[in-house]
Structures are given as C-alpha cells and as structure tokens.
C-alpha cells in the first residue's frame, strides 16, 4: 500500500529486521543473481589466505538490497525516487541486521527519509537517505 503524507510526520521512525544470522549461502545467492562473483564474498580460502580478511563478507549491495526491501515495504511498489547509501562497515556471515528509516521532511508529494542499518553489536553498516512519492 502506498504511503499517505497525512499519516507521516517528521521524526517518525520505521524499523525492520532485515536478516537474522546471515548465511554464506545467501551471499552466494546474491553473487549469482547480481553477477558480482568477487571471491571476497564467496571464497573463504582466497579471502583469508590472500586478501587477509577473517572470513568472506557480504556484498555492500546485498545490504543495500535488503535495506531497500524495508523501504519498498514502507513506501509502496515503484514509489522510490531516490535511494543512496554509504557502506560504513562490513557485514559478515552470522550477522543480524536491523534497518531504520526516519522521516525528515514531507512536502510537495515527496517524503524524505534518513536510512540506517546496524548489526547485532550496534555498529552502523549502512548509512543513507531515500525519497519517495507519497499520496496526499
């Protein structure tokens, strides 16, 4: 259901659990669908022995995609006009992620949000913004 501006006020916070105990298989699934086969995301041997990380880690774009689901669930299908993020920390297998979208402005049929996703330790892994068309 599309959002109505009348039901939104600045400061409202929408939250959602994005993933619980992220599995390596989901990261593989994302690699296959997106076409980003960087071994850093799926190849434990390469990632630990060559790249020097403690384990494979998720594509930033997987976190952006999961956070995007929270946004489209909130604003409705095909309603986003802008969505942008910075990847502020890596996401690892086993992580549990929670997203939040906070209303910062509602004017002229557009709602603006700040967007944040954090892991189970409270570390922000994604920080960004979104804008969407809303009904009056």
């Amino acid at each position: 259901m599309p959002l109505s501006a009348a039901k939104l006020k600045v400061g409202d916070v929408h939250t959602a659990r994005l993933v619980e105990d992220l599995k390596r298989t989901q990261i593989v699934q994302y690699a296959g669908a997106s076409g980003d086969y960087n071994p850093l995301h799926t190849d434990e041997i390469f990632t630990t022995k060559v790249a020097g990380y403690p384990s494979v880690f998720a594509h930033g774009m997987l976190t952006m995609g999961m956070t995007g689901k929270m946004l489209t669930d909130l604003v409705g299908d095909g309603r986003l006009t802008k969505y942008g993020v910075r990847f502020t920390s890596q996401v690892w297998p086993g992580d549990t992620l929670d997203g939040s979208a906070t209303v910062t402005e509602v004017a002229d049929g557009i709602a603006k949000f700040t967007v944040s996703t954090r892991n189970q330790d409270g570390i922000e892994v994604l920080s960004g913004y979104a804008e969407a068309r809303v009904d009056p």
């Binding site: 993933v19 699934q29 997106s34 995609g65 999961m66």
Partner: peptide, 14 residues
C-alpha cells in the same frame, strides 16, 4: 526470471 532470483537473494518475497 532474473528479477525473481534477484528478489529471492535479497530476501524480498513481494
């Protein structure tokens, strides 16, 4: 089919 696989991979059942 590609959209379906992509949506599954980000955990979106819409």
């Amino acid at each position: 089919g590609h959209i379906m696989m992509f949506a599954r991979s980000i955990g979106d059942p819409n």
